[in-house]
Design a protein around this nucleic acid. Structure first.
Length: 563
RNA sequence: GCGCCAGUAGCUCAGUUGGAUAGAGCAACGGACUUCUAAUCCGUAGGUCGCAGGUUCGAAUCCUGCCUGGCGUACCA
């Protein structure tokens, strides 16, 4: 309908003298149903060019459209309204035909054809120094759902987790675990007091690093090492063997947490491989050859100030160790070299400053940076009894993603993370997510889905005789038509959500579908009407269940058959 | 100081490629279960769209300035 109308509209305008060649009419969905199903403000926009009143132009535009003529099985009415809007209404016949196609497509309704392009979505990417936080949860759910959306719009998608198990962080981790282990083995160990997360004193062994990890999980890992009989960590092992054990342990717990969230990675990319391959140094040399590198104070600098940046950036510290920027550049070069058509990064707001440097470097290295899309999401505040809950990996007192999943479950967790726009701060109210769970918005689409399943089951029990080939044109009730219109939007909503990298558009849509269904349910009985109407309404219910199930599966939220 | 994000109903947030009367959920108030699931529905109330200018037929949306909050602005990641 939309495509058809656009073609008709613009064909009319092409033949219209005085209309600028580059003028393209657009359609919008009016928010007031009295204004039809689609509308165009073309007449208003042409007023200046044609030097006539918008209303006048709209009248003529309408006449010219009707003269083509318009296919009455698609468009039922064309009206001029307001200051010069033209409102179009769908023909019921058109809606019924589309509904038939929806039912035919079934679990593929909303899914676009594969177009042969590939995408890689990098997300989570937490280093194995501690359990995933709630912030990682938002990252994981966003990344996974954006990957789903891209798949549904025809991309072949790779989900990748980028991590680093070398360097300072892992050294500190090993030292932290070793110190806690020593403390367990030898209770007489001399202790010292350092500052905890709230500035409170914390007792740690003398050998504990000042910037060590204070989390309880460090002690857990230490006692696990002590219990383990496999000798993988020698009693007098160095910090490195402790760090290896801890890394393995933490990675397993991270994987388990992701599994609970329904997140599955295709590939894990270790930053270390960029050093092993020498890619990191190749980047420096190529940038140097291009004149964007200089040495100062023993460090290697990148001339970011010549590329629109505020100041030059250090790529290699005077210690010889690269900053995070250098491997980031090499990593993204690697992703582009792997031939992906689209490279998506999911970053927290605290990484906002890192990617302009990366993009600038890739740009001068000759890569097509337009293939890279960085999704930045804002921070999560966890509220319990109206008070913010502290969340930090390094410090002791924090709420982990696992704790959250324990408290509210995977569906609610995913929904809360997905229902807000990524660039909006997220207040995750635990009380609302748990105690008030009877009014929890996540249950809207789920409940509607379960209700339909229940109706189908009931129909089977009482042996209702449905005709699955029933002509759907019998559906003419206001609530039926409104529901059909809502259902047919799924493909375009998925497309919009994918193009914008904003899953909340889909989450909001599914709630609308649930509302439209419930209104239909309230005014139209399915079982117990005469056979024709009963059959047609059952088809409509099945179509609704299909849309809800497909949409929920994109969000990674379950579509239960009963609740 | 500079950069990014945000400021919309009591609360949490949609709506921002400029369109017609700014929406939803929760909270509040009033109704509806002998019916296919009441985890629901219907109704009422609730707004200087942070402030001030500007652009135009039209601004929550675009431009400028200012205010407030978050995150950055490392030879941390």
């Amino acid at each position: 309908m939309e495509q058809y109308l656009l073609t008709q509209l613009n064909n009319v305008l092409v033949d219209w003298t005085g209309v600028p060649d580059d003028f393209v009419a657009e359609l919008e969905k009016p928010n007031n149903p009295d204004h039809g199903d689609l509308a165009t403000s073309a007449a208003l926009k042409l007023a200046r060019h044609l030097r006539r009143s918008p209303r006048d132009i709209a009248d003529e535009l309408r006449e010219r459209l009707l003269a083509r003529p318009l296919d009455p099985s698609i468009v039922s009415s064309v009206e001029v309204a307001g200051a010069g809007f033209i409102n179009f209404r769908f023909a019921d016949r058109y809606l019924h035909r589309q509904l038939e196609q929806l039912l035919e497509a079934g679990s593929d309704f909303g899914r676009a054809e594969q177009h042969g392009k590939t995408a890689i979505v990098e997300f989570v990417s937490a280093n194995p120094t501690g359990p995933l936080t709630v912030g990682h949860g938002r990252n994981a759910v966003l990344g996974d759902t954006i990957a789903n959306l891209l798949e549904w719009t025809g991309f072949a998608v790779t989900r990748e987790y980028y991590f680093n198990d070398a360097g300072r962080q892992m050294r500190v981790l090993g030292q932290s675990v070793k110190a806690r282990y020593d403390e367990l083995v030898n209770p007489q160990l001399p202790m010292k007091t350092i500052e905890g997360p709230e500035g409170e004193p914390v007792e740690v062994p003398d050998s504990f690093p000042d910037d060590g990890y204070l989390g309880e999980y460090i002690v857990d890992i230490a006692s696990e090492i002590r219990r383990s009989q496999d000798g993988s960590v020698p009693e007098n092992g160095d910090a490195e063997s402790f760090s290896e054990f801890a890394e393995k342990n933490i990675f397993e717990s991270i994987s388990a947490t992701l599994r609970r969230l329904g997140v599955r990675m295709d590939t894990f990319f270790n930053e270390r491989s960029l050093y092993d391959s020498g890619d990191v140094w190749t980047v420096v040399e190529r940038l140097r050859a291009l004149g964007y590198i200089y040495d100062k104070d023993g460090a290697v600098w990148f001339k970011m100030s010549e590329l629109g940046g505020e100041q030059d950036k250090v790529l290699v510290k005077s210690t010889g160790e690269p900053t995070y920027r250098l491997p980031d550049i090499a990593y993204h070069a690697d992703k582009l070299n792997r031939g992906f058509d689209l490279v998506v990064d999911i970053f927290g707001a605290d990484h906002i400053a890192t990617y302009p440097d990366v993009l600038a470097a890739l740009d001068v290295l000759g890569f097509d940076t337009s293939k890279i899309k960085v999704v930045i999401y804002q921070f999560v505040t966890l509220l319990r009894a109206g008070q913010p809950v502290k969340m930090s990996t390094r410090k002791a007192n924090f709420e982990s993603l696992d704790d959250l999943l324990d408290e509210v479950g995977d569906d609610v967790t995913r929904y809360f993370f997905l229902v807000r726009s990524p660039n909006s701060h997220l207040e995750f109210d635990l009380d609302a997510a748990t105690e008030a769970s009877e009014n929890n918005p996540v249950f809207y689409p789920q409940y509607a889905h379960a209700r339909i399943c229940s109706i189908e089951k009931k129909a089977e029990e009482v042996g209702v005789d449905f005709d699955s080939n029933q002509d759907l044109s019998i559906l003419a009730h206001e609530a039926e038509i409104a529901l059909i219109k809502s259902l047919l939007l799924l493909p375009s909503v998925i497309k919009e959500a994918a193009d914008a990298y904003e899953p909340h558009k889909l989450a909001g849509y599914l709630r609308d579908v649930a509302v439209a269904f419930t209104q239909f349910y309230g005014s139209c009985r399915i079982i117990g009407e005469d056979r024709d109407i009963s059959s047609a309404r059952m088809q409509l219910a099945i179509a609704t269940r299909t849309v809800l199930a497909n949409g929920l599966s994109v969000l990674g939220i379950s579509a239960p058959e009963r609740m």
